[in-house]
Design a protein around this nucleic acid. Structure first.
Length: 845
DNA sequence: GCCAACGTTGGC
DNA sequence: GCCAACGTTGGC
């Protein structure tokens, strides 16, 4: 964090020199210099992108005085790589993109910030060294920089006038370092793949001899692609990410190639230890003897020291110090002693090279971290035959070459497990059917229950290796790499039926946007019906479109609230909340465990009067929406209902984090200001939210016992499993209203209204059933318990809505369908009966 | 290599 | 504050 940077840091004064080197190196750039030069744009903003992403990076990293890299000579063929090897503090490999304290302290040297900035950096390299320098030394930079869409494109006349090309290096993740090539047509079509390119240029240009990656045509046989000598490249691991590209052998021209060699920056120069990080190094060296590895090991993967926010391990690789000195360690896997600085994937436990290598083999990806051994006794373990029906079986059938997934019916279902949110292994539940399409069997409530009851938590979709991964994360991860992976996957629980659903509905706005449905691929979101019921972003859920964070009665709706990315907005939010908060905003969404607790809590919230008012408005607004699902939405899947933006605005400051901040009482009553002042500091760690609703606090309804009774029933219903997509709310009256949220349900137009005396009425399309309806005979006259309510709802599921009278004359498809009914229509008829006797009789007349 | 879709951002 | 847009990355 200190601006006074230790000597190993790039010195501003050296920058111009380095920049010159960069230009020179750019000319040598093997893959792009020719194009760059041919475009004659070295000094133009468009020229910069032509440079390798490393170019700018190298500018600041090249400091041979400080870092004589012995491996550099092995890489000298590749300017980039050799440069990359020089003097770069490989801190970034150990410090996650998510900033933390330590990262802050070293962030100024973070090469990833540079290299991974990709095209944006390249353009900035032209913008001026000062700017670039500022970026380098920026202490609290956004963890990811979004490249400007217009940046990084270079003219690519090979495809015709006006065509442009851009290379983008993946900046994180397991495929970090992988380079993607994009083309931009004169019309602005962004081409992401060869297929797309062929499509765009169909009939215009024959691309049969075009190599997409390099952007060049070749004659006859494919032009030999320059393969840089990487055999002697020393690599190290950056968690799982790095391994993937190591396996692929990719990343050669990327910042990764640079990073890979950083561990080998040999720190033979004692100067390296004389840094601001000397304490770290001191710690490290104290535990590590001098390296005794066989030089041959240089070709092996040399792992960095672990980083862990929870352990006082030294920061590795400060200015190449990583791995400079080895120690005798005991492998956490096999127990053998070995010499070196080899650590496991999470860089937290010593891991001998053998175990490390074994853990990297695709053949046994789960061996290493598997903690849960099938019990061998449960039903799942006793099953020896794949069901052929579950998603995992189907997956295997569809992609036999892909990772093997154990049949869900063969999964061990022993009851010992970790709870949700702990990341522990989750158990499969009895599984009878995997819906190929979304159906009404989805139930928010039931999912809630799953989440609330760890013992019931299931993981139908968790394939075996996924489970292991999860376990792995749980076991050792405070690691930010793991966090990152979690983040990447956190929109999907993998268990709910939406997650299991494999088919796109093809009708929602997200589907329509998909190229396969003829869309323009602008939204790029998963089908709304396939959005995870638990963890999807709320605004992506089918029934949350345009809604705020709260449901009709103020309950927090399913799904994650929108994240509030403030770091790019220069917000002062959280500015006083500790060193990590300022940079960790993207992670503020909390852990999944917290998230679930937040989302599915049925506790009423404490809150201020202000929030109460909002809730009232929200309540009304949402009620209108729910009552008008028919309007403007088809199956709840089309475009947003107008006027919802106001609703959102009203709720805006209670959404997202703010919502999470609402502290909640546990007694079902609103605590005005009682905990409001329980500071925002604490709130951040206690994202316990909840429904914000209490009629008792409503001045218009306070003090009425019967209402309280109704509220109690509501609370009970909230904490219970209701049949598929039935939802309990309180409406004016007051009445407890049970509505069917799914438009695909037969009961979509059906409501159950319970008055304060627990007498109830069933309505269909807002028309009450006749008191003589047989339904009423089957159930108690009063619904005063959850059981009675659930029984009724289950009973309703056996009915369908009477189709009424068929039009006597065929209508054109454009005409609205007007259903005629007998005045005595039963509305609800048994499933096998499509038309009630009264309507049928009327039709017969 | 390609596609799906997650996460982020800039514009409004 | 919202959200369309899209850069980016994981999975197959």
């Amino acid at each position: 964090m200190n601006e006074e940077e230790p000597p190993e840091s790039p010195v501003p004064g050296t920058e111009p020199v380095v920049e010159e080197e960069e230009e020179e190196e750019d000319e040598n750039d093997l893959e792009q210099s020719a194009e760059t030069k041919s475009s004659g744009a070295e000094n133009t903003p468009e020229a910069a992108p032509a440079q390798e992403p490393l170019a700018l990076l190298d500018r600041f990293n090249t400091n041979e005085n400080l870092s004589p890299d012995p491996m550099q000579e092995n890489l000298d063929e590749d300017n980039e790589d050799s440069k990359a090897n020089s003097g770069e503090p490989p801190i970034d490999w150990f410090e996650p993109l998510e900033d933390d304290d330590d990262a802050n302290s070293v962030g100024k040297n973070d090469p990833e910030e540079e290299s991974l900035a990709g095209e944006s950096e390249r353009s900035e390299s032209v913008a001026g060294s000062e700017k670039a320098f500022r970026k380098i030394y920026q202490l609290q930079v956004p963890r990811r920089k979004r490249s400007h869409p217009d940046e990084g494109w270079i003219e690519w006349p090979m495809l015709g006038e006006g065509w442009k090309r851009k290379e983008v290096v993946r900046r994180s993740g397991s495929s970090i370092g992988q380079k993607d090539v994009y083309y931009l047509s004169p019309r602005g079509d962004r081409v992401r793949s060869r297929v797309e390119l062929i499509s765009v240029l169909e009939g215009i240009l024959d691309l049969s001899h075009f190599e997409y990656k390099t952007g060049k045509f070749y004659d006859g046989e494919a032009q030999p692609i320059r393969v840089r000598n990487r055999t002697k490249r020393k690599v190290r691991e950056r968690s799982s990410s790095e391994s993937s590209w190591m396996e692929r052998g990719e990343g050669a021209d990327t910042p990764d190639s640079y990073h890979r060699s950083t561990p080998n920056l040999t720190p033979k120069n004692p100067h390296f230890n004389q840094t601001g990080y000397s304490s770290h190094n001191a710690m490290m060296t104290a535990n590590h003897g001098s390296r005794s590895e066989d030089p041959g090991d240089e070709d092996k993967i040399r792992l960095p020291l672990p980083t862990s926010s929870s352990k006082p391990l030294p920061l590795p690789s400060i200015n190449g110090e990583i791995g400079s000195e080895d120690s005798t360690l005991v492998c956490a896997k096999c127990g053998i002693s070995f010499t070196g600085t080899w650590y496991d994937k999470q860089r937290k436990r010593p891991c001998c090279p053998s175990c490390w290598a074994a853990s990297k083999t695709k053949e046994h990806p789960m061996i290493r971290f598997r903690k849960w051994i099938p019990c061998g006794q449960c039903v799942g373990c006793h099953n020896t035959v794949n069901c052929g029906q579950c998603a995992n079986c189907k997956h295997g059938l569809q992609s036999p070459e892909s990772r093997k997934r154990i049949c869900r019916k063969r999964k061990c279902i022993c009851p010992i497990r970790k709870g949700p949110g702990s990341g522990g292994l989750k158990q499969p539940r009895p599984y009878n059917d995997i819906p190929e399409t979304f159906d009404d069997s989805m139930s928010f409530q039931s999912e809630v229950t799953d989440s609330q009851h760890p013992s019931l938590k299931s993981s139908d979709t968790e394939n075996f290796s996924v489970n292991v991964d999860v376990d792995d994360e749980d076991e050792m991860s405070t690691d930010d790499d793991d966090d990152w992976h979690k983040k990447r996957k956190r929109r999907s629980c993998g268990e709910c039926k939406a997650c299991l659903c494999r088919k796109d509905c093809g009708t929602c706005d997200f589907c329509i946007d998909k190229p396969k449905f003829g869309g323009s691929n602008k939204k790029r979101q998963k089908c709304r019906l396939r959005q995870c019921q638990r963890q999807a972003m709320r605004h992506l859920l089918p029934f949350q479109m345009g809604q705020g964070d709260y449901g009709p009665d103020g309950q927090v709706l399913p799904g994650r609230p929108r994240p509030h990315y403030t770091y790019s907005r220069k917000s002062n939010f959280k500015k006083n909340k500790g060193p990590q908060s300022a940079l960790d905003l993207t992670d503020n969404e909390d852990d999944d465990s917290n998230f679930q607790a937040m989302n599915w809590s049925s506790e009423p919230a404490a809150g201020s009067k202000h929030s109460y008012e909002l809730n009232v408005r929200n309540h009304q607004s949402s009620m209108q929406q729910l009552n008008h699902l028919d309007y403007g939405q088809q199956n709840g899947l089309t475009d947003r209902v107008p006027n919802l933006s106001n609703h959102n605005s009203e709720l805006g400051h209670l959404s997202g984090w703010d919502a999470e901040k609402s502290h909640t009482g546990r007694d079902g009553q609103m605590h005005v200001d009682e905990e409001d002042e329980q500071d925002e500091e604490e709130e951040e760690e206690l994202p316990m939210i909840t429904q914000i609703f209490s009629l008792a606090d409503n001045p218009a309804a306070s003090g009425v016992d019967i209402e309280n009774q109704l509220m109690k029933l509501l609370q009970s219903l909230r904490s219970s499993v209701l049949p598929i997509l039935w939802y309990a709310i309180i409406v004016e009256g007051p009445q407890l209203q049970l509505i069917q949220c799914s438009k695909q349900s037969n009961m979509t137009d059906t409501m159950v209204l319970i008055d304060p005396g627990f007498c109830y009425q069933v309505t269909v399309q807002k028309q009450p059933l006749l008191p003589t309806h047989p339904l009423y005979d089957k159930y108690p006259g009063r619904l005063s318990s959850v059981t009675e309510v659930v029984n009724l709802l289950l009973g309703l599921d056996k009915y369908v809505v009477c189709q009424g009278l068929h039009p006597r004359e065929p209508l054109s498809s454009k005409d609205p369908l007007i259903v005629e009914r007998a005045s005595t229509c039963d509305f609800l008829v048994k499933r096998k009966v499509s038309i009630c006797t009264n309507c049928r009789a009327l039709q017969g007349l």
